[in-house]
Amino acid sequence: MSSFKFDGREIPFVDGQTILQAVQAAGQDIPHLCYHPEFKPHGSCKLCSVRIGERMIASCTTPAAAGMNVESDTPDINDQRRTLLQMLFVEGNHFCPSCEKSGACRLQASAYELQMMSPHYDHFFPDRPVDASHEDFLLDTNRCILCSLCVRASRDVDGKNVFAFSGRGIHTHLIVNARSGRLGDTDFAAADKAAQVCPVGCILRKRVGFAVPIGQRPFDPPPQGE
């Protein structure tokens, strides 16, 4: 089996695997937000960027190749990842204490992992819509990080095409494919894959918020002394 070097360790891979896939198959990980193993990589969040030689590349979209020397967990690369997270935090409205996804949010967990102590930059405090029109789901775009997982899931798995991106650059935003633009006017349903992939608190199931106590949520630290 071919292999490449990842932070000094040999990682085996099979043809067609990306760097991130091979690293995960070997039981290691690279910080990521827009990557999900069940979908075609999007390569947009750049959190999974690694260095090969002089180049920074997204490990979720780059095929593994024999003999490559991949650097990931280094202070300078983690500094860049922290900067990306800080930009995501100030671009949206991410107020963890009042968010139902807190403790189960990949953006928050990534910030903990990369020891993001402050947002560093000036906040945009954007004015973004909240759509509560759907019977079972809430769409709070204040927290959208444009990972496109819901877009991909709804289009590629559910075959419904409920979500899309509109606008360009800093004006890119999540929209709902309905004449009214409201989630309640689509056939979006709880059983949809798109209802389960949001890594942040943007697509939220109604009436189950804060059901899991602090300390038992997926990304809470394990209790001390156990």
């Binding site: 935090f89 991410h94 107020f95 963890c96 009042s98 906040h123 973004r128």
Partner: peptide, 18 residues
């Protein structure tokens, strides 16, 4: 030293910002 969420990102009072 900025102590706590509100000192760091405005927190709950900043919910009025929009």
């Amino acid at each position: 030293v900025a102590l706590g969420a509100c000192a760091i990102n405005g927190g709950l009072p900043a919910q009025r910002n929009h």
